[in-house]
Amino acid sequence: MRSQQAAWAGSPTGASGYRGGRRAILALAWALVWIGLVIPGVAPAASGSAKADAGPWNPELEEHVREIASGLRCVVCQNLSVADSPSDLAKEMRNLVRELVQQGKSREEIQAYFVSRYGEFVLLSPPKRGFNLLVWGLPFVAILAGAWGVYLVARRWTLRREEAEPAVDPVYAERVRRDLQEREGPVGS
């Protein structure tokens, strides 16, 4: 499902119900494919669907296209980027990105174009401004706060221990001895 065009409206998966004539449809589909493959020229060769590149292979260009496309959401898939999706629309979008790059458009311009057409929804990574700063900032704030908290707690515990009793608790000493034993074999044997 992830890779498929699950979101095309009116997707027939649910609508067609229970297939009494499943065999028939299978046979039909089978015939279609088979006729096309065995008897070349019968099936129309014209195809609107995407063909990949025609020009010479340019690794730097492709890398750049891939980088931009991987930040765009494939709108007919679930959680896949335009770069990764095998769907036709994603292929067309990759081609469009390539064209725009070749026209000299920057990454930001291309993103802005897609946002103007599909809304912010199309960006897989929320732009870092306004409300979105929360999603970018909070994780680091939370971790720093957590680390600070650990420091405070650890310091309080250290102080408490120093106040309490400098002498070594016998139970704890036994534990330490056992730890050492666990790590380095029998002690003093």
């Binding site: 991987s70 959680n79 912010e120 897989l124 929320p126 999603v135």
Partner: peptide, 30 residues
Amino acid sequence: GICFTVFLGTIFPLLAEAIRGTKMSVGTPY
């Protein structure tokens, strides 16, 4: 902290819709 990040990223589209009223995505690059 990582768990919080994943949690935040997962429900952030919902939060953004509730507060800003816009649909947005939080995906792999984030």
